[in-house]
Design a protein around this nucleic acid. Structure first.
Lengths: 153, 153
DNA sequence: ATGAAATACATAACATGTTATGTATTCGGA
DNA sequence: TCCGAATACATAACATGTTATGTATTTCAT
């Protein structure tokens, strides 16, 4: 049986600038992730693309934008930089001349293997001292906020 | 007496890409906040500056950068845009010729009053259905993650 | 008192994202 | 079948942030 007051440090606070708190957390994650990815020559914006294409899949740019949850022009410029840096390849879709098939280069493939341990290490560091229950509570509460915010769209 | 299982929707999950969850939440906050601020002619990056100077205070750019938790060059360009848009004024510090005193213009002052209700409304929407206890738990857990991540810097 | 270090600001180059808009191709209904 | 709508991508302009670097001023230790 778990009691909420068993969560270390729990205290009753005044309303907090919640968006500022999530923003700071995200910027810390971003900063540390960029630092760790640097050794592999990767950038944080590239992660969703590398993840989506890791198993050799070919996707078009719209599908990648949807996967990464960014707009299409953002994906276009991201892929231009990744192509410039030799991480991906684009070739025309033979079945639809509007569309472009994107795949990882061998170098992109190789570098993508570094991502999982880096993410795991950082997540472990972030959740240091968390019980599995606390982690679940956090995820649940964040997802509830996410859903509430999506209703505002 | 509170039991953790009383938190609606609580369930035991596999480890989640926590940074992706906080990033999505932050981007939702940003998107909605930008939308609401647009009516007042404000942008999200301007909020810390308006907040720091709201009561007529004059701060130099370094102090504002520290307050906003961004680097100095980012604050320089932000203030250049805000000056261009008539929200702030810069004048040389008479006691230190390296330094610039930044103050809000009357227009900046006036617009800054719109911020608090907008933030409150969005926070209320985000925390819809949260008990005060749940809000406190979320803040506590996020602050613990923040502190753990800062140790990694 | 002076010279090295620290501080405040600016600028350049860049990554990452947005909205607005244009172009080419494909799809689907009259 | 053909024309208008939808789709895929590109480009421009911009906001927001970063690191690297330069310049001017101030501070501080010898």
């Amino acid at each position: 049986m778990y009691f909420i007051h068993m969560i270390p440090g729990i205290r009753m606070t005044a309303p907090s600038p919640l968006s500022a708190l999530t923003t700071r957390t995200t910027r810390l994650f971003t900063h540390l992730l960029e630092r760790d990815l640097k050794k592999s020559g990767l950038r944080i914006g590239q992660l969703p693309v590398l993840q989506a294409l890791q198993d050799g899949k070919a996707l078009n740019q719209k599908a990648l934008a949807d996967f990464a949850d960014i707009e299409q022009p953002g994906m276009t410029t991201l892929l231009a930089r990744m192509e410039r840096d030799g991480l991906i390849q684009r070739k025309p879709d033979p079945t639809d001349r509007r569309s472009t098939q994107v795949t990882l280069t061998p170098d992109g493939q190789r570098k993508s293997w570094n991502i999982v341990p880096i993410m795991e290490h950082l997540t472990d560091a972030a959740l240091k001292g968390f019980t599995p229950l606390e982690r679940d509570i956090l995820v649940t509460l964040l997802e509830r906020i996410n859903n509430s915010l999506k209703e505002q769209l």
